[in-house]
Design a protein around this nucleic acid. Structure first.
Length: 448
RNA sequence: GCCCCCAUCGUCUAUCGGUUAGGACACAUGGUUUUCAUCCAUGGAAGAGCGGUCCGACUCCGCUUGGGGGUGCCA
């Protein structure tokens, strides 16, 4: 056990951004690594945007990624009295003061003025702290300014609420995005003015897009929910996210959650921005899918079959027989059941380009009919028997006197029975589909 | 403008003064195979620039350039 207490403190504003959840992931990992507590605080002071739905999205995203927290959720609005009490203390100690300030609303352009409370920053010397990832950080007092902690409507701003809540929850390490480094100089002063111990800080590099700009929804999936919808496994996204700005120091990349917890440390976190490489995530997702136990994958396939209105069992074989060849070819769960639907429905969809290329060749249809007859006449219809038959045919001389070759036979058959150009090995596919269906589809393909 | 931070293959990264600068993704080629995927092999691919310090710098220091963040009565 350790006395470390970290927190994830999102403000629910709609969807959970990938950069945001990454902060949660690192907090969680750090807490689990050192045996401390991971807390969740919802900073719901923006009443307009902090809806039940928005909060649920945060909770859902965390649950999906397996980020369990150790104490009941704290809602910032419930601490309003503490925030104001802290302001009173700062006021009476002279650390804060009231002043009339004029401002322009950036949205409406309206001018307004009113009495606010400002926090007093030092006028000389330096403010400094040691960031657990960025090292020594310092800012000259002359480069700081007093800042508003209570608005003219009497509501406390982020800075005071955030710090007071962290004190109340006994947070020892603040792990957050790089966009908060400037705030740190302010927050440290508040902690001190309130007589509270200053926590340790660790600022995580930003996640940026291929252009090096902040990663946004324009760059593809930017919110946790979208990755789920697009068929990514939470384990894969988790693993990938951890590798953005952190590496174990050896050559491991695909790591289990336990391995990540064991290996994680803040001092190995990089401090430069990391680009989000969707291709690598896709690869990693494929790795995780391939490594899923067959029954887990089968359950996923089943539910997606049901959602697509397809039968629970393939037409010519069992689901268990179909799983291995399908699983290895699945990169995201959204590939299901599309990449194997011709095993489940009698009337299949044909890829027009494949039909054009493979079936509209001179002699192609005659050949399909010949194979239909030959397959129908086979004593038994298996991977071995169908392969032997096709190979024998491939060795025979074609019109030009040379052997026909496997490719010229296999491709048309594949398109005729599956409607597409890729999939399991042809003979495996034939055996799984079953003789009657194969023969029927070969004959039907002549009409295409 | 001012303040803070950052800088190794296209991308994610290893390296904590001495290495043929390693791995992964992506890409290319070859092998396996009827396709796709898998698997195996091979290949191209990096220390932003200029100065220092040092016997010796990717590594330490400075400057330049480039990038990011901040500069709200947002969080």
């Amino acid at each position: 056990m350790s006395s470390v207490r970290v927190r994830f403190a999102p403000s629910p504003t709609g969807s959970v951004h990938i950069g945001n959840i990454r902060a949660a992931v690192f907090n969680w990992l750090y807490a689990r690594h050192v045996g401390g507590k991971f807390l969740l605080r919802i900073e719901d002071t923006d009443l307009a945007r902090s809806t039940k739905e928005a909060i649920d999205k945060v909770l859902d995203a965390m649950a999906w990624l397996g980020l369990d927290y150790d104490e009941p959720v704290v809602y910032q609005t419930h601490n309003a009295a503490d925030h104001l009490a802290a302001v009173e203390r700062l006021l009476s100690s002279g650390a804060a003061y009231k002043a009339v300030k004029e401002s322009v609303d950036p949205a409406t352009g309206e001018k307004k003025s009113g009495e606010v409370v400002l926090f007093r920053m030092p006028k000389e010397g330096v403010v400094e702290y040691t960031d657990l990832v960025k090292g020594k950080m310092r800012k000259k007092a002359e480069d700081t300014q007093d800042f508003v902690i209570v608005r003219s409507d009497g509501s406390p701003v982020f800075h005071i609420a955030n710090v007071v809540d962290d004190i109340k929850q006994g947070v020892t390490h603040i792990i957050r995005g790089d966009d908060h480094v400037e705030n740190t100089f302010k927050h440290i002063q508040i902690f001190q003015a309130l007589g509270a111990p200053v926590p340790q800080y660790a600022h995580l590099p930003m996640i940026v897009n291929a252009q090096g700009k902040p990663y946004s929804k324009r760059d593809g999936a930017a919110f946790v929910g979208e990755f789920k919808e697009q068929g990514y496994l939470p384990e894969a996204l988790f693993n990938f996210l951890v590798l953005l700005g952190w590496a174990p120091g050896d050559d491991r990349e695909v790591m289990s959650r336990d391995e990540l917890v064991e290996a994680f440390s803040l001092d190995r976190v990089k401090s430069s921005p990391a680009r989000f490489d969707l291709k690598k995530l896709l690869w990693m997702n494929g790795e995780y899918i391939a490594r899923q136990p067959a029954d887990v994958f089968k359950a996923e396939l089943s539910s997606r079959l049901a959602a697509a209105g397809l039968p629970a069992e393939p037409l010519g074989c069992t689901l268990d027989e179909l799983v291995p060849p399908v699983q290895i070819r699945t990169k995201t769960l959204s590939d299901l059941p599309g990449n194997c639907e011709y095993f489940f429905k009698e009337r299949i969809d044909y890829d027009p380009a494949a039909v054009e290329k493979r079936l509209h060749k001179p002699g192609a249809k005659e050949r399909l009919l010949a194979f239909a007859d030959a397959f129908a006449a086979l004593p038994d219809f298996t991977v071995e028997s169908t392969e032997a038959l096709v190979r024998a045919e491939a060795d025979k001389a074609g019109p030009d006197g040379k052997p026909v070759g496997m490719g010229a036979l296999v491709h048309p058959i594949r398109v005729a029975v599956s409607g597409r150009t890729e999939g399991p090995g042809l003979f495996e596919m034939l055996a799984l589909l079953g003789r009657d269906r194969v023969v029927r589809r070969l004959r039907a393909a002549v009409a295409l």
